[in-house]
Design a protein around this nucleic acid. Sequence first.
DNA 1: GATGAATGAGCATTCATTCAT
DNA 2: AATGAATGAATGCTCATTCAT
Lengths: 216, 216, 216, 216
Amino acid sequence: MTDAKPKWNRRKDARPSEIVDAAMALFAENGFANTKLDDVARRAGVAKGTLYRYFDTKEALFRAVVQHLLTNHLEVVEKAGKAFEGSLAEFVPMLLKRAAQSLGDDRLPGLARVMLAEGRAFPDLAAVWHDELAARMLDLIAGMVAKAQDRGEVRPGDPRLYAFSIIGPISVALLYHEAFGSRADAPDLEALASQHAETILRGMAASIPYQKEPTP
Amino acid sequence: MTDAKPKWNRRKDARPSEIVDAAMALFAENGFANTKLDDVARRAGVAKGTLYRYFDTKEALFRAVVQHLLTNHLEVVEKAGKAFEGSLAEFVPMLLKRAAQSLGDDRLPGLARVMLAEGRAFPDLAAVWHDELAARMLDLIAGMVAKAQDRGEVRPGDPRLYAFSIIGPISVALLYHEAFGSRADAPDLEALASQHAETILRGMAASIPYQKEPTP
Amino acid sequence: MTDAKPKWNRRKDARPSEIVDAAMALFAENGFANTKLDDVARRAGVAKGTLYRYFDTKEALFRAVVQHLLTNHLEVVEKAGKAFEGSLAEFVPMLLKRAAQSLGDDRLPGLARVMLAEGRAFPDLAAVWHDELAARMLDLIAGMVAKAQDRGEVRPGDPRLYAFSIIGPISVALLYHEAFGSRADAPDLEALASQHAETILRGMAASIPYQKEPTP
Amino acid sequence: MTDAKPKWNRRKDARPSEIVDAAMALFAENGFANTKLDDVARRAGVAKGTLYRYFDTKEALFRAVVQHLLTNHLEVVEKAGKAFEGSLAEFVPMLLKRAAQSLGDDRLPGLARVMLAEGRAFPDLAAVWHDELAARMLDLIAGMVAKAQDRGEVRPGDPRLYAFSIIGPISVALLYHEAFGSRADAPDLEALASQHAETILRGMAASIPYQKEPTP
DNA sequence: GATGAATGAGCATTCATTCAT
DNA sequence: AATGAATGAATGCTCATTCAT
């Protein structure tokens, strides 16, 4: 067997990544102040001092976590934008469905929650989060809306506000799950994604939209 | 000596309210962990020890703050519900407009932000917040949607999910302002309220809704 | 008896002073780095946190200690200067004797030792120490030497360097005691003060000095 | 492969010397507590772990540094002693001049400063420093003084105290430079050496000493 | 009741030392 | 022999909580 040495011996390059993973889980779960570096170290399977080889301070670790998450999601957002240059009617359901699915396997909603909490304490981090994720995603959606308006598919109106109309409900529902847990009356995210996609597209449609039945 | 007890002789009953006000402002601004009781005391104009005459722990103070806010808003919500038993088309714009205006003068968005952040740390408080505000408001809206469906005005669909569709965007926009401040590209809340109200009502409408022009 | 309450109750104004005293003893004994705030607190009879009510950081406490000592000694130096405007031959023995006696009851030699050690780490403190104590004392002595030269009592030469000649040996001997303890061969400070005073005054004297007996 | 082991293949015996040099520079500059082994290793051009192949602890390294310095200076002192068995009047100016020149190129004043500071923490090291350097040098000087007294050249008095009178001023001035840097008013060491040598020899002289002018 | 000095558990951070490679 | 990542005990500092006045 090649599993040889049980302790550290494993790829040292992976160490920072293991730490970031552990930290991400704990920050997303407990917030910044309630996360103890002792716990991060324990969860990462290293000693407390080891954290400091890679990150100068707790804050630096938090920043790394946020950056790591943003970097991952940026690509997804960018790609999604290019893939759907055409049809808003296809893009919106896909986007919302994806967001709905992000709850379990993704730390983004959890970290979003924490950023909300600590945004005042880390204004520059909030700015990065905003510039690189929030604003970018809104711009992407607003851009697609604008194009659809040019094609006459969407009613007049501020595309940016439409972007809020599109992603607002699923975002709030995600936070709802984050904050209140998935209790009995928490919304079914996929159902919401599906129903809201249809509803909002209808509402934005130029005339009698998305109506499969031929107008007599 | 009767020389005018220079300090406390004001109604003792008023003290808790001053404390709660001060605490509400600071909790809403900085979150639970980042709020120091020293600051609360200073802002309330009392000594630190005085806080403990009225509240056993920092957490108890936080609970009182949340309860206080909830109590205030409950009445509003309840009344709003009764006042608009009739028309969803009138209720939704009014509701969103009101929410949009709540940003400046109201601590609710700030505290909502904090509840979202600290919900995990205070599950029972989160439960109160949920039961007494979030769920109640959602139920109210969902109830109105259901009635509108009964009247044939709104398309079929889960009324509760429609409720998310209605209040999601303005909620997210409020949080956006809370988190990122009112920077250049932050959405204009009143414009969003107005545009989204129209859009979502259109999207929910049973057929060709809100169309003043008679179909020939 | 009025010794009433055993714990804190005693003049709270004295608290900072008690802390400074305890800190002075420990800093003078162990240096800055080797002094633990836990020990300072224990020695001062207070809790660790109490230190922070009066001093923001360990460094601030150290500064307070140094300032405290300087303030005390400044007065002595100033007065000594005024008292002996006349005679170098009387001033020098008195000064050296006093310095010799400072070993036991005075923390100055100990702190001088520490300042020597930490001067590089606290350049501004070193500057204060220098400006307010070292330079001032040297100036005082140099001034008296210069006057004596004007009166023709002392040979030509740089008065400032004469000042070093006067206080150098006793200073080094004090440090010797500080560093090596009062072991067998450590110099007898009072004897040194007496012998050096006579020797250096002879050496500085314009001609055949201090020679009461007329040369036949 | 024989491709020139890019790293270590230089004489292993030389390594300790490089380490001791680096450590001496840093200890002399920053003191014991403020010197980090990381820095010593970096300055010596080796890895941190390498230090431990040659020195068991930080303290052991410090001892080695002190020993190294002492060994170097012992020879000088011994030789100087033999070379000047005759004349105090020639020896003293030479000794002080040499001490004055030691400031720049020599680590001794710096280490002396540190020994002074850390003497309490390392009593046995202080003992070595004392026995092998301080005491020896004092003995040397005292011995020469005693001989001069036997020859009737120096007035009666404790030779050991005379030794302090001789080297005290230049020692203090060296420490002055060490502690306060060479600021404007720091004494000119060579001038002090010259002036003090003449002054103290005069003061110690049996009668009318060093007087070029013939007594009429 | 009110005060605020005092408390001390809790936590981030440093750095000498170890040890698998 | 040399390396440097990993370790964890030690310590400065914070802040919710207590309590003598």
